[in-house]
């Protein structure tokens, strides 16, 4: 009985070190589409940071607004100066939690649906969001994928009426981060 107690205590003490597993990347991609039938507007950021904790479900993404690449110089200038004001609001951050963590087995390869809820900060405005995505577990790599839409007005991004047939009221955002285990 005493032995059993000791084993139980040891197990209890060891558990955090077993369970605490963090994954991260500094080279994820975040892209968006905010064009219309009149014009394509696409931006791509290849240096997104993502970190998540497989035991607590805490997840965080961060990008530098100036890091978005565009096909046209003018588009990039307008994006930074008029819409996102990247000198003032240099970063965009998502901080949240994986709410269906119990459905993901990080030890078994496969694709798992993921539900994430948290605060998304864009253009200095913080808003609560919830979205569905996927985790692709491949050994010690976890690829986090999500696609969702935001309403520009929600984040105080003003589109002048002169260009409102070129710029959509919403932006479709795609996230693709290949995370490696942090040892």
């Amino acid at each position: 009985m005493k032995n059993l107690m000791i084993i139980a205590v040891v197990f209890f003490l060891l558990q955090p070190s077993f369970a605490q597993k963090r994954y991260f990347t500094k080279t994820g991609t975040v892209s968006f589409r905010a064009g219309t039938a009149v014009e394509d507007i696409d931006g791509l950021n290849k240096s997104a940071t993502c970190v998540f904790d497989a035991s607590s479900g805490d997840i965080q993404f961060a990008i530098l607004i100036k890091g978005f690449e565009f096909k046209s110089a003018l588009m990039m200038e307008h994006f930074n100066e008029n819409y996102m004001e990247s000198d003032k609001f240099s970063k965009s951050i998502f901080k949240g939690k994986i709410i269906n963590l119990d459905k993901i087995n990080f030890l078994k390869d496969g694709t798992y649906p993921v539900k994430v809820k948290g605060i998304l900060e864009i253009h200095g405005v913080k808003k609560e969001v919830e979205t569905n995505g996927q985790f692709k577990v491949l050994g010690e790599t976890v690829i986090a994928i999500a696609e969702f839409e935001i309403v520009l007005e929600d984040y105080a991004i003003a589109v002048p009426s002169l260009v409102k047939d070129k710029i959509s009221k919403t932006a479709r955002i795609k996230v693709n981060c290949s995370n490696s285990i942090l040892k």
Binding site: S47, T49, I63, L64, E69, K91
Partner: peptide
């Protein structure tokens, strides 16, 4: 140079 997150990031 596009700024600093955790790292300083260079683009292109």
């Amino acid at each position: 140079c596009t700024g600093k997150l955790m790292d300083v990031v260079l683009n292109n």
